Amino acid sequence: MPELHLIRHAQASFGAADYDVLSDLGHEQSFELGKALARQGVSPDALFMGAQRRHRETLEGIIKGMGRDPAEATVLPGLNEFDFSGLLDAHYANKPAPENMHSERKSHFRTLRDTVLAWQRDEIENPPETWAEFSGRVEAARQAIAASGAEKVIAVSSGGAIGQMIAATLNAPSDQQIQLQLQMKNCAVNRFIFTPRNFFLHGFNETPHITADNADPLLTYS
């Protein structure tokens, strides 16, 4: 049965001027994940990724770690993360925003959770995209992967899009998307098996590259 390894990007640059760049640790994470996947015998015949830089850099590191030659990946914008900075700004456009919501991790993720729940209820005016648009494009990406004809797929995405694909696969309420997202580790592998008509979750938030010896510093969440 065809299998999809849907991978969250490696550590990006939280708090920096450009978040969409892997940190030095992020490059190490992606390389180590590639080595771990090779040890598991994962040999993809199709590669997909979102259109963001952190997706491309993560996939490049994975492929390098697997010892494979660089290969072209199909870009699916539906795998992109939602614009969390723009969404936060829209939510607090007409009211005081929590202090340091863009720069301090604890404040950011607590505020993001509440903001996403409001977004799902269509309570935010003029968001960068509506919840329906976001969930629709994630579903379109899932369908494109399932229709690709590939047997072993590696795809790199972001926590929000992955959380939504999992929630939709499980027919879970919308509010479970953000709960899944906030659990997602950097370079975590989420596995699905599928047929033309069915799509099943087969593994969640797996980190085959992390052991007791390297969990510090390789285990990160943002």
Rank of each mutant, 00 (worst) to 15 (best):
E3K: 13
I7W: 08
R8C: 06
H9V: 13
A10T: 09
Q11F: 11
F14E: 02
D20F: 09
V21K: 01
V21D: 01
L22G: 01
L25H: 03
E28V: 08
Q29K: 08
Q29D: 09
Q29I: 04
F31M: 10
E32P: 02
V42K: 12
S43V: 12
P44V: 06
L47R: 06
G50L: 04
G50N: 07
A51G: 15
Q52K: 11
R53K: 15
R54E: 03
H55M: 13
R56F: 14
E60A: 13
G61C: 03
I63W: 03
I63C: 03
G65P: 06
G67D: 07
G67H: 12
R68A: 13
P70G: 07
P70T: 10
P70E: 10
P70H: 08
A71T: 15
E72K: 14
T74K: 15
T74V: 15
L76E: 04
L76V: 03
G78C: 11
G78K: 05
L79N: 11
E81M: 10
D83W: 08
F84Y: 15
S85K: 14
L88R: 02
L88W: 05
L88C: 11
L88T: 08
A90K: 08
A90N: 06
Y92W: 10
A93I: 05
A93K: 14
P98W: 04
P98L: 04
M101Y: 09
E104C: 05
E104M: 11
R105K: 12
K106Y: 10
S107G: 00
H108N: 12
R110G: 07
T111F: 00
L112G: 02
D114F: 00
D114C: 00
V116C: 10
L117E: 09
L117Y: 00
Q120P: 01
Q120E: 12
E123W: 00
I124Y: 05
I124W: 06
P128C: 08
A132Q: 15
E133T: 14
F134S: 05
F134M: 08
Q143R: 15
I145N: 05
A147G: 02
A147F: 00
G149I: 06
E151F: 00
E151Q: 09
E151R: 12
K152V: 13
I154D: 02
A155Y: 02
V156L: 05
S157C: 09
G159D: 04
Q164D: 13
M165N: 04
I166A: 01
A167Y: 09
A168I: 09
T169L: 12
N171H: 14
A172M: 13
P173S: 12
S174F: 06
D175S: 12
Q176I: 04
I178K: 04
Q179T: 13
Q183Y: 00
M184K: 01
N186G: 03
C187M: 09
V189R: 05
V189Y: 02
I193K: 04
P196A: 10
P196V: 12
N198C: 05
N198D: 15
H202F: 10
F204A: 02
E206S: 11
T207E: 00
I210G: 01
A212T: 14
N214T: 10
D216A: 15
P217Q: 13
